[in-house]
Design a protein around this nucleic acid. Structure first.
Length: 433
RNA sequence: GGUGAGGUUCCCGAGUGGCUAAAGGGAUCAGACUGUAAAUCUGACGCGCGAGCUUCGGUGGUUCGAAUCCACCCCUCACCA
């Protein structure tokens, strides 16, 4: 990585969507340690993998000696960013947003270094400088610098303005000004001269560079990262079962690991460039090797290992791999009772069985209650012999035989039942001692 | 404030009195094929093992019968003032 400049590396990874005056920015970054920021709005109690790209990019800047600021949007989160959103968003109340802000702060802190001298990272909250701001001051000092003509010309709000059926409220329209104000404030307080963000943020970022120039008389830069897309056109980071969150409480390390393992071939190498710190040369080598080889490629495996380690640490990765090995090797016989307990701890979905009333509860209900799907899906799977209990296929005729299927004597160590639905869904049922 | 257009099952979008749990597409899930890929084909897709139960912005009403008709209300958007 040392032979390339930062921008060259980012470019090679395909991580640059747009930037303000490339040449000047390149010089700026080479001349000195630059303070840069990226904002994360609290729209939930955890970030999801969509935020991983900017987060890791902050880290990349830091590795090159620059100082990253992670801005948590305590105030902007109250407003809602309209950029490229089809619809007006619901407002969350301020206590909720405040609690989310705290969670995001912790999460963001996992990725950047807070103790490395002059380029140590910092977390800032824009509520700190907007809370006390009164409307008139804001309108006179900040609002004056914005031309509504220019604002409505921005691509990011255009579809909302042109669109029949959905419009944009003044509140959301103002979002851009708030974000620009953030940049200007950070420029003043931290000498921050660069803002990075997703490509949907371009309009908001250039708003900030201009406001900084006008109010502070300083040159400021912007750089946007590409939107992560999948080759099949579906949305990245979301499965029908849910978003892939960074929080282990919301998406277990195991599920997280599986997500990356299941990435399509066509996306695996690009994702390695986006989401890992492996050099582009190494990644190209992996890709070339996979092309040579017959059968299953390595790319997804490397990706899953690297990203899981980044987000959940070595322990999270080990746990995820342990579960994966147990479930997909198909061989449960060499697992000890302790191993089963460990799998539960590691995040394999599990639930305890209650003997009482089991005889009149069909498998469909039992499995549905364990969140393995709804009744119809489970029935469908039973019909196709796609449900196995400890490796034994069950059919529709077993639907009313829950008590037999889950008889204690049938369980491994008289306690554990590993139920598999289809190829990939697993659930551990157990009798507590 | 006026005028017009709308609010259908996860999404898009048909549906104007019974044949409609509601066309079609997308997404999703399962099976075959595979590599825990992709593509393709098959099935499921409001809830329920089932009898059956609950839906079409809300509330009332007309009717043997309403997503479809009527009244009022709520919400969204556009244009005008």
């Amino acid at each position: 990585m040392n032979e390339l400049t930062l921008l060259q590396d980012l470019k090679a990874r395909g991580l640059i969507a747009q930037m303000t005056s490339e040449e000047e920015l390149e010089n700026h970054l080479n001349e000195s340690s630059v303070t840069l920021y990226c904002g994360f709005d609290p729209t939930a109690d955890s970030l999801h993998i969509g935020s991983l790209v900017p987060l890791l990019t902050l880290k990349r800047f830091q590795q090159y000696g620059h100082k990253p600021l992670a801005l948590v949007g305590g105030s902007t989160g109250l407003i809602g960013d309209p950029s490229f959103k089809a619809q007006e968003r619901k407002l969350n109340d301020d206590e909720t947003v405040a609690s989310w802000v705290n969670k995001l702060k912790e999460q963001v802190s996992l990725f950047i270094d807070f103790d490395c001298g002059t380029h140590s990272a910092e977390v800032v909250n824009n509520l700190d400088w907007t809370r006390g701001l009164d409307v008139l001051t804001f309108l006179r000092d900040v609002g004056k610098h914005f031309s509504v003509n220019q604002m409505i010309a921005k691509e990011s709000v255009k579809q909302r303005i042109d669109r029949d059926g959905d419009g944009i409220s003044f509140t959301e329209f103002t979002y851009m000004i708030l974000q620009s104000f953030d940049f200007q404030q950070l420029n003043k307080s931290h000498h921050c001269t660069l803002q990075i963000g997703g490509s949907d943020q371009w309009g908001n970022i250039t708003g900030g560079t201009e406001l900084t120039r006008r109010m502070n008389g300083n040159r400021a830069y912007g750089l946007t990262l590409p939107l992560v897309t999948k080759s099949d056109g579906t949305k990245f980071g979301k499965t029908e079962t849910g978003t892939i969150w960074l929080s282990a409480a919301k998406t277990s390390p195991y599920a997280f690991y599986q997500f990356w393992l299941q990435v399509a071939d066509a996306d695996a190498y690009q994702f390695l460039k986006y989401f890992t710190f492996l050099s582009v040369v190494e990644i190209d080598q992996i890709e070339a090797d996979d092309k040579e080889r017959q059968g299953r490629p390595e790319g997804q495996g490397v990706l899953a290992r690297e990203v899981t380690k980044l987000v959940h640490g070595e322990d999270g990765l080990v746990a995820a791999q342990r579960i994966t090995a147990a479930l997909f090797s198909g061989d449960l016989s060499d697992l000890s009772a302790d191993d089963f307990e460990q799998l539960k701890q590691d995040g394999l979905p599990s639930s305890s069985l209650v003997l009482q009333g089991m005889s009149d509860k069909p498998l469909t209900s039992l499995l549905a209650e364990a969140d393995m799907g709804n009744g119809k899906q489970i029935k469908d799977a039973l019909q196709r012999n796609a449900v196995t209990v400890n490796g034994v296929a069950k059919g529709l005729e077993d639907n009313f035989k829950s008590a037999e299927v889950f008889a204690e004597s049938e369980g491994i160590y008289n306690a554990y039942f590993l139920v598999k639905l289809g190829k990939k869904k697993h659930h551990l049922f157990y009798y507590s001692a």
